[in-house]
Simulated scan of single mutants.
Amino acid sequence: MFATEDVLRVWRKFDNFPMETLTKAWFFKQNTEKRQREVSLMKEHREQYGITGNCFDLAIWLMHEFENEGVEAYPIGHHLGTAKAHIAVIAKNEQGNRYLCDLGDQWLQPILVDTDSEDYCEDQLNGFFPGAEIQVKQDGDTLSVLYHRPNGKVSTQSFNLAPVTIEDFSRAAEISQNTINKLPLLECRIPYKNEIAHWEFYNWRSFLSTTEGIFDDPETDDLEQWCARIHQKTGYDEKFLFEVLQIFRGMR
């Protein structure tokens, strides 16, 4: 189930990359003709502010790095062109095995999706997703991911494994970058005891998801406190954070 080194070598470059909509709202305010950033601009913003982007930004950047390393990769997704759009990446290793690479949902590592592979396992697995055990099931071109939470709750996400065309991908990315939700979102992976946990900031609340359960952070409505908290978790520039959180506060 674990990815081979050719895939992991690229994936590890993104270990400290949050997924967030803060950058989307900030860049939307720049009034550029095109809202989906190129990789070169994403890298500039990362260097200047420490920021990353949403699932489309991360997928584009990840595929760019796979291409540079000679690894075949293509986008898959669901609800493209809508406010619920989500995009991920399939990477093929040298043996032709396919791995789901989902930075948008902050997976810990890629997971094998070919059920006919001798390495495939249908059991619940640890170490792939923070705060949950994972199962993958395939029915034709439909991939279902089951998330088993510590409280017994099970949620499911489905993908069509057929590649999204570059035209459809580009169109969906531009739609997503022009669709601003008034509720700010940031997710990242952080060390917690003997595991990597999932920290989330959403709708002016933040919490840590672990195998021990969910731990809520103290409530606050102070922008400076939010900037300090998010900066501590991500390293994002605090001036950038204050500017973008003011944008979201103005949308309340």
Rank of each mutant, 00 (worst) to 15 (best):
M1Q: 08
M1I: 03
F2D: 15
F2Q: 14
A3L: 00
E5H: 11
W11C: 07
N16A: 15
F17R: 08
M19E: 15
T21L: 04
L22F: 10
T23D: 06
T23W: 07
A25F: 10
F28A: 09
K29P: 00
Q36I: 14
M42Y: 06
K43H: 12
E44W: 13
R46E: 12
E47C: 13
I51S: 10
N54R: 00
C55E: 03
D57K: 03
I60D: 11
H64I: 08
H64Q: 11
E65K: 07
E67T: 10
E67S: 10
E69Y: 05
G70E: 01
I76D: 03
G77D: 00
H79I: 00
H79R: 10
K84N: 11
A88R: 10
I90W: 07
K92V: 06
K92Q: 10
R98T: 02
R98G: 03
Y99D: 11
G104Y: 06
G104H: 05
G104N: 06
I111C: 07
T115V: 14
S117N: 03
D119R: 12
Y120I: 11
Q124T: 10
L125C: 08
N126Q: 14
F128E: 03
P130C: 06
G131L: 01
G131P: 03
G131M: 01
E133L: 10
L146F: 14
L146P: 14
Y147E: 07
Y147G: 05
H148W: 15
G152L: 00
G152N: 01
K153C: 09
Q157C: 08
Q157V: 08
N160P: 07
P163T: 01
V164S: 04
E167Y: 15
D168F: 09
R171E: 13
A172K: 00
E174P: 04
E174V: 02
I175M: 04
I175E: 02
T179F: 01
K182C: 03
L185M: 12
E187T: 15
C188E: 09
K193T: 02
K193H: 03
I196F: 13
F207G: 04
L208M: 00
S209V: 06
T210I: 01
E212Q: 04
E212V: 00
G213H: 05
F215Y: 13
W226V: 02
W226C: 01
H231E: 09
K233T: 12
G235E: 02
Q246G: 12
Q246C: 13
F248L: 05
M251D: 04
R252T: 15
